[in-house]
């Protein structure tokens, strides 16, 4: 780089640029927070859903599945599983409940988590809630 462009000029670009774009990120973050109520389906965020989210976390479901496209890529997307299972929380509960303890020979298998009735209802409601989030029409189709 040329002699007229000095180290202290470069340093000032670093400090100035970083501070400016950090503040811009903050501003966009505030704006996002104020736009979220229209998008994040919070009117359906019940106690049950909150409990379901805890069940999701405590069993590390994201270690195999994606949720809204984030997580692991070993097992199907669950952001729209409620629709894929015919808009039925019972179908979701039935699936989770019926996983064989020793898996399915030769296949990728989901563990049997032995969830209580309350936990099962919670996780199903959580996935139903998630399917109501405005994701700008993602995923492209029902297969997730």
């Amino acid at each position: 780089m040329s002699e007229t462009f000095t180290k202290s000029m470069a340093r000032n670009i670093f400090y100035g640029g970083s501070v400016f774009f950090f503040l811009l990120l903050l501003a966009l973050t505030f704006d996002t927070e104020s736009a979220l109520p229209e998008l994040d389906n919070r009117e359906n965020l019940t106690e049950e859903v909150a409990l379901g989210k805890r069940v999701w976390e405590k069993n590390n479901c994201v270690g195999c599945h994606t949720l809204l496209g984030e997580g692991a890529y070993f097992a199907p997307e669950l952001g729209n599983v409620y629709q894929r299972f015919g808009n039925s929380t019972d179908a979701i509960k039935g699936f989770i409940m019926s996983r064989p303890k020793d898996g399915i020979p030769g296949r990728r298998s989901m563990p049997q988590f032995n969830l209580s009735d309350e936990e099962l209802e919670g996780i199903a409601q959580f996935l139903k809630y998630t399917s109501g989030i405005n994701t700008q029409n993602w995923p492209p189709n029902i297969q997730g």
């Binding site: 195999c64 097992a75 020793d102 898996g103 298998s109 563990p111």
Partner: peptide, 10 residues
Amino acid sequence: GDFLFPEIPF
């Protein structure tokens, strides 16, 4: 898919 299952799940 069932390698080490259920001892070490994915």
